[in-house]
Every structure is written in structure tokens, then in C-alpha cells.
Design a protein around this nucleic acid. Structure first.
Lengths: 230, 230
DNA sequence: GCTGTTGCTAAGCGCGTGCTCAGGGCCCCG
DNA sequence: CGGGGCCCTGAGCACGCGCTTAGCAACAGC
């Protein structure tokens, strides 16, 4: 991990018109391989991009269909409503990030190693898949009550993975924390927020961001050295 | 600060219909004392509540006017557009949180004390004023390009305050960080995210949240103890 | 060649949106 | 009582929204 690199903050317009980088688009498409007919997948990818740029409510079905190279009516052959698109995106995104987190948390090593791996993987995903992650993290409130409840269950399981890791480290005597639940939530906050500020081509690669956040997570749970406070 | 309190996570519907707590409503009103005619202030407070619950694009001008006890047309006597309401909210909110942060950062003590005070105050504000903060942090993209640029300038100044504090601590030999800018951003991420998950009446008071995050911020910058990693 | 199925489009319906405008009640000054 | 300024309302306009419907081209099976 490089130290103290210089560079711009790069806070640019989230809903701007800058073209999507090729790297970005490629990474985005790969995650949706499981979605069945080709036209349905193209619509889903178009919806992810549109929702990420403008938000769910500011995106029109005409915009989504246009990005997918289709007429507005084509959308309704593959999806019942605009909300169903959001639900599918949210579902697949949450399941993917949860499984990444679980795999890392179930790896080899002690609590420190596994916590670092989990936070690193979760943070890295939010950078690499920042377009999807933005929709997944910040458009929840547009879901129908039923779909919202379903997604919240996935989120609770995500929180539980990190919380369990922290508690395990405390029991093993490796970690010292004031509040395991709140500490776990703070780690998730760090990673989620990557989706808000990350821009491709910035100072840091997704991998560097993951590594940096893994280090921060360890600092949060390891007992601090005696400080210079008076 | 209490350790390891038990309780529910409390992730409830952001756009739900639960009535606003009295404590909440009171705290919200106090911050807008500077807004001039009484009717304009009532409209602003109504807009904050509506935007926080449903988001800018899902909120109608009829809804805002209704909450303020007025007809839809009354809104346009005090504000040119719906976007102007969002701009005023964003402006006042950013200025308020920036000035809180600056006051704490300019206080007495060494870098550790001032960093803890700054992060504590900033985190606490995002809990106390979570309704305003939600609009301020998550509805930026609905601003017009001019207004957006103005607000981004305020945000950069906010980032600079924390970054300068971290760099000062590094120069003083109190802190050890891999990347001062990224560390400062992480601290802000923690605090901003409070606006997303905080619910009044939860496990923690705003003050406890601020204190907890101040402690986390110090852990992030103080060199970690030798770890148990192999 | 005929029919059924699949995947799409052109056209458009009904509605709710942001916003406008003519006018009316109320208060202060004479 | 008259006149003017300040707030506010009732009614409604133009538009763009989510979504529907009728129909068409392509193709497979027989």
C-alpha cells in the first residue's frame, strides 16, 4: 500500500454526463451473467447505470429502454414494473456482496486475518462495483414494502457476519472494543460510503482501497497504544 | 460511554409513516431560526421532513405545502422552484456542520484532543439533525449544476478541516497513518453514514454516538499495538 | 402455405406533476 | 370609508410520466 500519495479529491457530479469508462462497463456486465434472456440483462444493466446516475425516481422507463436500445414498451415484456428492476438489482447486489463477505470471513487465520480479509473484500467490491453498489446502498427506500423487508433481511445478515467476527476476536483476546455491534456498523459504514465517493481513475485502485480499509478496521479493534493526551 | 449494551439494530423503513418524535421536530425547528418570514421557515421545515422521508424527486410540491398547512401555490411566493428549497436546506446544513467542525478543530489541546472533539461534534450533529443531514448528504445530485458546485466547495472545506488536523498530528509525531487524506475521508464517512442509519430512540444517544466515533477516530490515527497476526 | 409463438414497436391513455395566474381577505395609513 | 401592499387560495395549464394495447416481423413445426 502506497503512503501519502498526492492528488485531487475528485468530487465530481454524480449525475453528470461523463461517459462510463470501458473498464467500468465491463466489470458491470460480468456481474449480471446469471440474468437470463439477453434482452432482460441489457435492460438490467441499463437500469443500474441510470439509477446510479440519477436515482430511481428521477429515472424514466424511456431512459432505461433507450440505453438498452429498445422501445419503452419492451421493458414490460421482461419486467412487470420499474420497481421490479430495482428489486432484482438490489437482490443480486446484496447477495453478491454478502457471499464475498462470508467467503472472506470463513477463510484461514485468526480473527484479525479474517476481519481484514472481510473488510478488504467488502470495501474493494464497493469500489469495483461502485455503480451497482450506489443503487444497492442508496435506493432502498424506493422498494415496495415487501421487497424492502426481503432486502433488509439480507442486510441484517451482512451486519451479523462482521459483528460475529468482531465478537470472536474479543473472546479470543485479540480485540478490545467498547461496543462490538457499533464497531461492526462503523466498518460497514466505511465500506458503503466508498460507493458514494469512488470514481474510476482516482488516486486509488479498488484493491488499494480494500487494503487501506482492512488496515483501518484492524486499528479500530486493536487496543490503542498509550496516547499523548493530557 | 457504556460498553456492550444489548438491543436491536433497528433498521426500519426510511420512508415509513411513523410519526416524527417531538424531540426530533423541536430540534429540527431550532436550526432554522435564521430563515426569515415565518411562512418561509415552515415551508423549509416541511421540505426537510419530506425530502428526508421520500427523497427529493419522490416529494411533490403539494406534499410540502400540505405539511406546512398551505396551498400548493403558496410555496411559489417564497421560493422560485422546488430545487431552491433543496438548495437552501443544503446550504444552511453544510454551513452549520462546517462551523461546528471548525469550532471543535480550533479548540484547546493537542491534535488528539482536537481531532476527537471535531469528529465527536460532527458525528453528534449527524445524529441530532439526522433529518436535515439525510437531505444534506444524500440529495446533492438533485441540485442544479451551479448550486451543486457551490455546495461541493463547502464539502471540500469540510474535508480540509479534518485532513489538516490529521496532518498536524502526524507532524507533531502523535499520529501514524498510511494516508492522511484517505484517513480523514474515512472519518467523515463514518459520521455521514450516521444520517443513514440513525433513528431517534435507538440504543445510543447522539452524544454517545459522537463520543464513540471520536474514540474510533483516535484509534485510526494512533499507531496500533503489536498485533496477534501471524 | 398456414398457424402459433416469441420478441418487439408505434401509438397513446389516464394521471399526477411543477408551476402559473387572477383574484380575494386582511391590515395599515390616511 | 378608500386605497395600496402583503399573503395566500382555487382553479387549472401543459407536460411527461408509468404503463397498456393492437399489431407486425421472424421463425419453427407440420
Amino acid at each position: 500500500m502506497a503512503a501519502q500519495a498526492s492528488g485531487r479529491t475528485g468530487e465530481t457530479r454524480p449525475g453528470g454526463e461523463e461517459p462510463v469508462a470501458a473498464e467500468d462497463r465491463h466489470a458491470g456486465c460480468d456481474s449480471w451473467r446469471s440474468v437470463a434472456p439477453d434482452a432482460a440483462r441489457r435492460l438490467l444493466i441499463a437500469a443500474v447505470e441510470a439509477f446510479a446516475e440519477r436515482g430511481f425516481h428521477a429515472t424514466t422507463t424511456r431512459d432505461i429502454a433507450g440505453r438498452a436500445g429498445m422501445s419503452p414498451a419492451a421493458l414490460y415484456i421482461h419486467y412487470k414494473t420499474k420497481e421490479e428492476l430495482l428489486h432484482r438489482i438490489s437482490q443480486v447486489g446484496h447477495e453478491r456482496s454478502l457471499s464475498l463477505l462470508r467467503d472472506a470471513a470463513a477463510g484461514r487465520g485468526g480473527p484479525s486475518d479474517r476481519l481484514a480479509a472481510a473488510v478488504g473484500a467488502f470495501g474493494r467490491w464497493h469500489a469495483e462495483q461502485h455503480t451497482t453498489a450506489r443503487v444497492v446502498q442508496y435506493e432502498l427506500s424506493a422498494l415496495s414494502p415487501d421487497h424492502y423487508a426481503e432486502i433488509v433481511a439480507l442486510r441484517r445478515r451482512t451486519e451479523a457476519v462482521v459483528r460475529d467476527l468482531v465478537e470472536e476476536g474479543v473472546r479470543a483476546g485479540e480485540f478490545e472494543v467498547l461496543d462490538a455491534r457499533a464497531t461492526a456498523l462503523a466498518m460497514l459504514s466505511l465500506c458503503l460510503d466508498v460507493a458514494r465517493w469512488y470514481r474510476p481513475g482516482g488516486r486509488r485502485t479498488p484493491e488499494e482501497i480494500g487494503d487501506f480499509y482492512a488496515d483501518l478496521a484492524l486499528r479500530m479493534v486493536l487496543a490503542p497504544r498509550a496516547t499523548g493526551r493530557h
